[in-house]
Each structure stands twice: as C-alpha cells, then as structure tokens.
C-alpha cells in the first residue's frame, strides 16, 4: 500500500529544517530513518501534507566524544551506533540494547534520534538512555538550543519534550566506562517489539555492586527508570539471592499494558525475573 500524497523537503542544515518546520507547522512530519514512520504512512494512519527528511543533514550524524560525554547525532543509524567503539567502550548498555532492535535491515536505516522522538514505549532505546542518564539537545527556532535531562524527556505515549517546531539534534550520554551491561529483551518471536525489556548496567568493585542503573521498556506509557532498585543494589554482592531481594519491588508503581502477549500483571512478574537476570548478567555473574 502506498502513502497518501505529500510534499517532500530535504533540508541540508538544522536551521533549514527548523525553518521548514516553522513554515509548515502541523502539516509537517519529520522523517528520520523512517522505519516506524513509513509503515504508518503506508497504512494511512497518518497523512502529513509535508514530509521533512533529515537524511541530508550531515551535522546530525556520527558519534563523538566530548569530555565525560559521548555525543551521538540524532540521525546516527543504529548500525553506526553499534559499529562505534566509543559506544561499546563507554556506553555498553546502549550497544547491547540497540543490538536487539528489530532486524539488520531496520538497523541499517533506523536512527537513534528517530526512535527516541517516536517514543514507542516498546522501543528498546529509551530505557538504556534513561538508565545512563542521557541528556537531549533540542534545537528550536532562531538557533535556540536547550538540553533536557533524561528524566524529563519522555512525557507520555509517543510524546517527548521535543515540542512543535523543534528537533532533537544530539543525545549526550555520560560515559560509563568499565561498567558491565546487559539488555534483557523478552519477546515471543525475534522480530517483535519488546514485551518487556530490562536495561541494566553495573559498576562492580571488589566483588560487590558499587553502582547500578536500571531502565524498563514497555512497563508503562514511557520508558521507566527503577531508581529504588538501583539504590537497593548498591553494596550488594552479585549473587542470585542478594540481587533477587534488591530487585523484588521493581514493578511496584508501574502500569504496563495488557495485550495479546501478556496482561499487565504478567509483565510485572516478568520485570522482576528479568531485572534479576539483567543485573546479574551486567555484573558478570
């Protein structure tokens, strides 16, 4: 099936893209990697008048290091994030999570920024970004930029802090060098969206967990961070028993969806089991 007609713009700079967004307002839809947008357009679930393709803005692509941060351009493809040694070294959790996204063809086209702004709660990038305490650089009209902390970025189902006329340009990820990481993705068939996903990264010291970060995928309308669990893990040995106790309340306060893959209670149960496994794997146990 073919999308409804639209006009197509392919600006070559962020400024031009923002200008185009301003001009077309509600009529416009931003095309990043397009791997979620194209099916939506094809099924005619959305019919924008103008599509603004960010594919030709080279400043939005690539991974660089800036002091204690990794800076990932919003239009960097999953594939390029996976290929980045800097990401593997300093943000292993992101690498592990992105490796599970969809399939190779999708990872070749799909972009990290596109996924974050699409903000599908079953997507696999939000939880690790949240867990790693990423911040999000957003460009707006007149050359304005602002930086939003991870905790404030995801607002609701398919809704982020990126407002009308704005673009996500960079994801800044604090380096977690030397941290163990694991993304535990639970699916029925491999090409599915996450039923539940757990992003865990752990810094170990002398056989115990010194610091931990835990993000939850598809446990609510946005990715969630389990800060209470993170705190409970501090100082614990990386043993089944200790971690089990520390993560026992991970699903408390969550409100995951119910669908064909499982009801809300089942997802809560999964989250407790999978968090334990993710943390133990991240700790190398």
């Amino acid at each position: 099936m073919i999308p409804a007609t639209f006009d197509y713009l392919a600006p070559t700079s962020v400024a031009d893209a923002i200008a185009a967004l301003e001009e077309h307002g509600d009529e416009a839809k931003v095309l990043a990697g397009g791997q979620s947008l194209l099916p939506i357009l094809r099924m005619r679930l959305n019919a924008p008048g103008v599509v603004i393709d960010l594919g030709k803005i080279s400043e939005l692509q690539g991974v660089t290091e800036d002091g204690d941060d990794l800076v990932i351009g919003a239009m960097t493809t999953y594939f390029d994030v996976l290929a980045s040694d800097a990401v593997s070294t300093h943000a292993a959790l992101l690498n592990k999570a992105i490796a599970t996204v969809a399939d190779p063809q999708i990872r070749h086209r799909g972009t990290i920024g596109g996924a974050l702004v699409h903000a599908d709660p079953a997507g696999d990038v939000g939880a690790p970004a949240l867990a790693l305490g990423a911040s999000f650089v957003i460009a707006g009209p007149g050359g304005a930029t602002r930086t939003v902390a991870a905790d404030d970025f995801f607002e609701d189902l398919f809704q982020t802090a990126v407002g009308e006329g704005e673009l996500l340009t960079q994801i800044r990820v604090p380096k977690h060098t030397g941290w163990g990481a694991h993304y535990e993705k639970f699916v029925r068939v491999s090409h599915q969206w996450s039923i539940v996903g757990i992003a865990a990264t752990v810094r170990s010291e002398g056989g115990a967990i010194a610091e931990a970060r835990v993000g939850l995928t598809n446990m609510g309308s946005t990715p969630l961070r389990a800060k209470a669990v993170e705190e409970a893990l501090v100082g614990q040995p990386a043993t089944d028993e200790a971690v089990r106790a520390a993560v026992a309340q991970v699903a408390d306060g969550t409100n995951p969806p119910s669908d064909l893959n499982g009801d809300s209670d089942y997802r809560k149960h999964l989250a407790t089991v999978l968090t334990r496994r993710a943390v133990l794997a991240a700790a190398g146990a």
Binding site: D151, S221, R225, A228, G253, N255
Partner: peptide
C-alpha cells in the same frame, strides 16, 4: 498507582 503519578512516588520505578 496511576502511571501519571508514579514518577514521583516512592515506588521502585520512576
């Protein structure tokens, strides 16, 4: 809890 309020609750997930 209602997910809208969960971000600031004492629960395990925020």
């Amino acid at each position: 809890d209602n997910p809208d309020t969960s971000a600031s609750t004492q629960g395990g997930a925020q």
